Amino acid sequence: MNSNARNGSDSSEGKLTHFNEQGRARMVDISGKEVTVRTAVAVSKVTMNPSTLEAIREGRIGKGDVLAVAQIAGIQGAKKTSDWIPMCHPLALNGVDIRFEDNGLDELSIQVTVKTEGKTGVEMEALTAASAAALTIYDMCKALQKDMIIGPTMLQSKSGGKNGDFNR
């Protein structure tokens, strides 16, 4: 491990923050940070056969309304991110919005916007929500098609906090 990873310095200086002086994992102390409005947008997609996408659109999936269930799964994923990702702080989320769009052929896109007022950002919550929604789509449609492809999943943008805004 390099010295930057061990020193626990701020990531804005190009150093990792999730390691203590002994090089061991730690949850970053955010007690001194300012509360700001924070927003993150993450995206993912599921690529599938046109017939699978058509079945989703027409409500012919035996397990139920795929997009409604995926939306709930994504919201739950955002709310439970700190249970999944060890160094994430539990956050009170102000809102989670999930939108789906298909390309009319073989791709179902997922866009998640997560907002909070807090001392740390919601990038991981948005990414977890997008992943949970994509995995739920796969789960609900796997009887029709097992070779669906999930991804890429990525942060599209974020705002708030001392490190400023990011736009892909």
Rank of each mutant, 00 (worst) to 15 (best):
G64H: 09
M87H: 14
R6W: 00
G161S: 08
A55Q: 10
D106R: 13
G8R: 05
G23H: 11
C88R: 06
V112Y: 01
K80P: 00
A73P: 08
G121T: 05
A133Y: 09
R168N: 05
A40S: 13
T47H: 06
R99K: 14
V66Q: 10
K158C: 00
K45L: 03
A130K: 08
A73H: 10
S31W: 00
L108I: 13
I75Y: 09
V69W: 01
E107W: 01
M148E: 01
Q111I: 08
P50N: 13
D10G: 04
V66A: 13
E34K: 15
S82K: 01
S12P: 00
L155Q: 02
R60S: 10
S11N: 05
G14L: 09
A55R: 12
K158P: 02
G8W: 06
M140C: 07
E123H: 10
K15F: 10
G59P: 12
F166Y: 15
A5N: 08
R38W: 04
L105F: 03
S51N: 13
A42V: 01
A25H: 11
T120G: 09
L53F: 13
M154E: 08
A126P: 05
L53W: 13
I149L: 05
R26H: 06
N49A: 15
E34T: 15
M124I: 09
D29M: 06
G104N: 05
L144Q: 11
C141G: 10
D106N: 15
S109V: 00
A70R: 10
S157I: 06
A126M: 04
M154T: 03
I85P: 04
K119S: 06
K33C: 12
S31H: 07
A132K: 12
N7V: 06
T81W: 03
G64E: 08
R38D: 08
I98F: 04
E34H: 01
Q71C: 15
S131T: 13
F166E: 02
D29E: 12
T39E: 14
L53N: 11
G77K: 10
K158R: 07
Q22N: 15
L144R: 14
D147K: 06
R24K: 15
I149Y: 03
A143W: 06
T52N: 03
S131V: 01
A126S: 07
V41C: 11
K63F: 02
K45R: 15
G64M: 08
T47P: 00
L144F: 13
R99W: 00
A42N: 10
A143I: 02
K33D: 07
D165Q: 14
L155V: 07
K79S: 04
E101L: 01
R24G: 01
S31Q: 09
R38N: 07
S109E: 08
R24Q: 14
T116W: 02
G118S: 13
F166W: 14
Y138K: 00
M1S: 14
E13M: 11
I75S: 02
E58D: 13
G74Y: 10
W84T: 13
V35T: 09
A129V: 07
F19A: 03
K45P: 01
S131E: 00
V122A: 04
H18M: 09
K146P: 01
L53D: 05
N2W: 00
W84S: 11
Q156I: 00
R168W: 12
E123W: 12
C141R: 06
K80E: 09
